[in-house]
């Protein structure tokens, strides 16, 4: 029997994988993909709670509307972020975060 805790554990592990990727990788595009993984982990736990809070035989659709908004904002964020990465690559010819140290103290 699959319980709410199983979905939450899987969601937490996916978030941790994304977080570890942001901490470990130095390629800015991979870091961006790991951010997407973390957003999706949050979506999974939202949908699991939506299915758990059954009201009059229906899941709580407020959480699913929230997930819909998150997906929309994430798509806009990906478009803008990748445009910034392309502009950065044009200026510096690198996507490696350690080569971009102008703001470093």
């Amino acid at each position: 029997m699959i319980t709410l805790g199983d979905y939450l554990i899987v969601s937490g592990l996916l978030f941790t994988i994304g977080f570890a990727g942001v901490m470990l990788r130095r390629n800015i595009i991979i870091i961006f993909m790991c951010l997407e993984l973390m957003l999706n982990a949050a979506n999974l736990s939202l949908v699991a709670f939506s299915r758990f809070r059954v009201d009059a035989g229906l899941p709580n659709y407020n959480a699913q509307v929230f997930v819909f908004f998150i997906i929309t904002v994430a798509a806009a964020e990906v478009a803008v972020g990748l445009a910034i990465i392309v502009a950065l690559f044009r200026a510096r010819q690198t996507t490696h975060v350690e080569d971009i140290a102008s703001l470093k103290f």
């Binding site: 029997m1 699959i2 319980t3 709410l4 805790g5 939450l8 554990i9 937490g12 592990l13 978030f15 941790t16 299915r51 758990f52 059954v54 009059a56 035989g57 229906l58 899941p59």
Partner: peptide
């Protein structure tokens, strides 16, 4: 995260059934 989920009191409950819609 695992500690918090382990102490969460709803985490061992199965999902309630849905009405046929």
């Amino acid at each position: 995260i695992l500690y918090v989920i382990g102490n969460f009191r709803f985490s061992q409950q199965p999902f309630p059934p849905l009405a046929r819609s």
